[in-house]
Amino acid sequence: MSTLAEPLDVADVATQFTVVRRRHTGRWLAAVVVAVLGVVVAQNVLSNSRFGWDVVGQYISDASIIRGLGTTLFLTVVCMAIGTALAVLLAVMRLSSNPVVNGAAFVYVSFFRGTPVLVQLLFWFNLAALYPVISFGIPGVHLDANTLITPMLAAIMGLALNEAAYMSEIVRAGILSVEWGQSDAASALGLTKGQTMRRIVLPQAMRVIVPPTGNETIGMLKTTALVSVIAVPELLFSSQVIYARNYETIPLLIVASLWYLAVTAVLGVGQYYIERHFARGNRNLPPTPIQRLRTFARAITTRSTR
């Protein structure tokens, strides 16, 4: 009785007993089931000749596919950049106490979130029907809308303006997530409103803004496929042009998908490191996978030398 009540000395326990680890039977079982299913699916996909893996291999680095990929990346970067810049402006406007400024931003966001982006793209593409001549109110200065609004420009406008509406809500949430005390402290030090926003609020808001922005970027990468309807030669359109010629529809769609997947994976890694950058100043950042791998390697080498 009395021996049971005595507290166990931990150091003592380690020397006296052999520790038996828990077995995690369920976890092992689940892993086996998943592995078997994976092998079955892979086997099926690779052995079905109609997937046309040889055709996939033939076109994966085809010049027009790579050019299409370039256009897709260009559109993603440009539209995200314009969209984000506009979004910061809209978010600051939304937080303004001036009802006209605030209202204008609200109407913008409502309009662009309330209509399908595909419709917006078609609108920009057909702008010439609405305004055949774009003048600037200055006599003699005018442009022909048909030559000005190229498919590429319509694509950029459609995607970027739409993205700004979504991103502005993300930026606004980020700004609101920063405590009021931060702005108070900055004001008390004599920083102007603009300096406070740039130096104090936005950098801290980034922690909230970056993760959903990563999703938006990945979303944008895939949404660029929509501009194939207005004949911008991006990745999907380039694949379509090829399979319209050789009828290898499925293999070429796989080619496009593999490229989308590859870029998404790279973006995911980039997002991880950007998030860590903006989380600086926090205690206990977990190590990155690479750091973890290094620690692991070091542990193994020291163990083997012992």
């Binding site: 405590e179 005390g181 931060q182 402290a185 950098p203 801290q204 903006f278 600086r280 100043g281 926090n282």
Partner: peptide
């Protein structure tokens, strides 16, 4: 609440 800037 101090209001130091945590990112600096």
């Amino acid at each position: 609440h101090f209001n130091l800037f945590p990112h600096m």
